[in-house]
């Protein structure tokens, strides 16, 4: 049983789907928070992922060239996260803040412009070509391999996937703690619930806005670094290609529902990978070329039958 079906299904479809789902989930958290707290669909969100990955790559290269110390991507991501968040808080202060009380469509268009600015900036600095992120063949995690082999269900999780799944879990727990146990996190949920009431409750909305960029930016950079680890390379369009599935995940989970976005991300990641599994006969269910259509289809179906998402999010 395991040899004929399970091994292939788990290792080549389920785990890659889960990994992709983690990346979508982390990206979708920022989208759903910006949508519900700052009230606009941020088209530049994919670029936060992308530039965070480029910062991380730069930290790895600098460390290796200057000190001869090769850093693990997750270590190099620490300064990159801070740099990216700092950058986007400045972008908010000087670029988005003047639009704070403008109509939504203006901010959305502004974010579209910001998307192009960032991508062009990255192309100018790092060049338009792909860069190698981590060279070499991904080795399976020995711990998982030995343990699962001992119960005759060998699972070969590449180390990079192991880190991506573990890292996502850690971030989820931290996020859950932040949103339910801290004053700033509860304030974020309050502003997302009702900005008018937040204002007349004396909640400092500008602090909440900064916290939103911080949390959304942190998760986005993590998603970008995880994506670069998975693909083992960087390119300037990597964030943009994530945008549609991330929006689909946010809508599926319900706007303003960070944990809905996580579930949405996992569902879409899994659906994309499992859609090419040979469920009937030998060929894959749908041609791999149509894989990216899966997220789009789920998003459209959801908007038609249940626009508030799985977890009763906000409607605009």
């Amino acid at each position: 049983m395991w040899e004929t079906f399970g091994f292939e299904f788990v290792n080549f479809y389920l785990i890659p789907g889960l990994v992709l789902g983690c990346i979508y989930a982390l990206g979708a958290i920022g989208i759903t928070l910006t949508f519900s707290i700052l009230r606009f669909a941020n088209f530049a969100h994919g670029e936060v992922m992308m530039i965070g990955a480029y910062f991380t790559w730069t930290a790895m290269v600098l460390s290796n060239d200057l000190f001869g110390v090769p850093l693990h991507p997750l270590v190099a991501a620490a300064p990159a996260v801070l740099l990216a968040i700092g950058l986007f808080i400045l972008v908010d202060r000087y670029f988005y803040k003047p639009f704070r009380y403008a109509s939504t469509i203006r901010v959305v268009m502004a974010s579209f412009g910001m998307m192009l600015i960032i991508r062009s900036f990255v192309q100018a600095v790092w060049g338009p070509n792909q860069l190698t992120f981590v060279p070499g063949i991904a080795k399976p995690n020995e711990l998982v391999k030995n343990f699962t082999a001992s119960v005759d269900m060998m699972i070969l999780v590449p180390n990079k996937h192991f880190w991506i799944i573990a890292g996502t879990l850690v971030i989820m727990f931290a996020l859950s703690w932040l949103l339910t146990k801290t004053k700033i996190g509860k304030g974020m949920r309050a502003v997302s619930d009702s900005p008018e009431l937040a204002k007349v409750s004396g909640i400092d909305v500008e602090i909440i806005v900064k916290a939103t960029w911080f949390v959304g930016g942190f998760c986005a950079v993590a998603a970008g670094v995880f994506l670069a680890m998975d693909l083992q390379m960087l390119e300037t369009t990597m964030g943009f290609r994530m945008l549609l599935p991330m929006f689909a995940a946010a809508i599926l989970g319900g706007i303003g529902r960070p944990f809905g976005a996580v579930i949405g991300g996992l569902v879409i990641g899994l659906a994309e990978e499992l859609s090419v599994y040979p469920w009937f006969g030998n060929g894959s269910l749908i041609s791999p070329g149509y894989k990216t259509g899966v997220a789009f289809t789920i998003m459209v179906v959801m908007l038609v039958i249940r626009p508030s998402g799985l977890f009763k999010g906000r409607l605009f």
Partner: peptide, 10 residues
């Protein structure tokens, strides 16, 4: 306030 005077999801 007259309307929207609680945070429903809190």
């Amino acid at each position: 306030p007259q309307t929207h005077n609680i945070f429903p999801n809190l």
